[in-house]
């Protein structure tokens, strides 16, 4: 099967949903520039379907920049430029003809600061499906309930769906944002330090949620918290700033290996808390 066969008939430049390809996401020799500044360099890695991959590393090493490669969120920055190959289900997502809106439907993202829209809980979750053309009230009701159940928030909000999304706690808001992403049925969920604004209990709830979601979704999470990476992830990528201030991938491997038997001295120094 070649790539042309994989591109679906809607001509989004993307492969059909859940295409049978080894490796959901793949980076090959990727460089990301902001103007003349190289933010990350020579990134190469493969991310498996239905796994959780943690990206760890000190502040400013390009973790978020790397994460935003996968849904082309860096496009929002006018000076950003990408070199190399970024693949989603085996298709280069930076090639001409790729529908970025369609890509982001399938590669959703949750942000550091919970950012529910200033509208009701129901409308927050229904926002994506509505914009994608679902008008039927019953269908929307079903999607909203299913997404909130999946995000482990249903029991807490089922009696106040018409209240503002901003009226619930920070941890609940973040799960609402996850539900909002789940409602458009993506295949990949990117999480950019989703727990850094939350207390430990809310954090644990999100981590439990990630473990349940991983049976259907591929999750990539950026985190500052090494315990979190150790707790939730299957694979860990350790990034560090190089001498020329660009982020580089120091080590990538199974989380159990990285945390118990790192191959690189820098990784060991970082995870044992000698710096960072």
């Amino acid at each position: 099967m070649n790539i042309a066969d994989l591109v679906n008939e809607k001509n989004t430049g993307l492969p059909p949903k859940n295409a049978p390809v080894d490796g959901k996401l793949r980076l090959e020799q990727v460089n990301l520039y902001y103007g003349s500044f190289r933010a990350v360099k020579d990134l190469s890695l493969d991310i498996d379907t239905c796994s959780i991959t943690a990206i760890i590393g000190p502040s400013g090493c390009g973790k978020s920049s790397m994460l935003r490669l996968f849904n082309r969120m860096n496009d929002l920055i006018a000076s950003a430029r990408v070199e190399g190959l970024v693949e989603f289900d085996g298709v280069d997502i930076y090639q001409a003809g790729v529908d970025v809106v369609e890509l982001r439907k399938r590669v959703g993202m949750v942000f550091q600061k919970p950012n529910p829209f200033p509208m009701s809980i129901y409308d927050n979750v229904a926002f994506g499906p509505r914009r994608h053309g679902i008008r039927n009230k019953r269908a929307l009701d079903e999607i909203v309930e299913k997404s909130l159940v999946q995000a482990a928030l249903w029991d807490e909000v089922k009696d106040k769906l018409d209240q503002s999304g901003l009226s619930i706690s920070g941890g609940q808001q973040q799960r609402l944002c996850i539900a909002r992403v789940l409602a458009v049925e993506p295949e990949v969920i990117l999480m950019d330090e989703p727990c850094s604004a939350l207390d430990p209990i809310a954090t644990l709830k999100i981590e439990d949620l990630m473990r349940t979601l991983t049976s259907t979704y591929t999750i990539v999470i950026v985190t500052h918290n090494m315990q979190q990476a150790a707790r939730v992830s299957d694979m860990t990528a350790f990034l560090m700033v190089d001498d020329d201030r660009s982020g580089t991938l120091v080590e990538y491997g199974a989380t159990s290996e990285i945390f118990t038997n790192p191959k690189n001295q820098k990784t060991e120094d970082y995870i044992t808390g000698r710096f960072g």
Partner: peptide
């Protein structure tokens, strides 16, 4: 705030 825009764009809304 740009967070609102990002939240929307990030779920494939044009």
């Amino acid at each position: 705030p740009k967070e609102y825009r990002e939240g929307s764009l990030a779920i494939g809304v044009s």
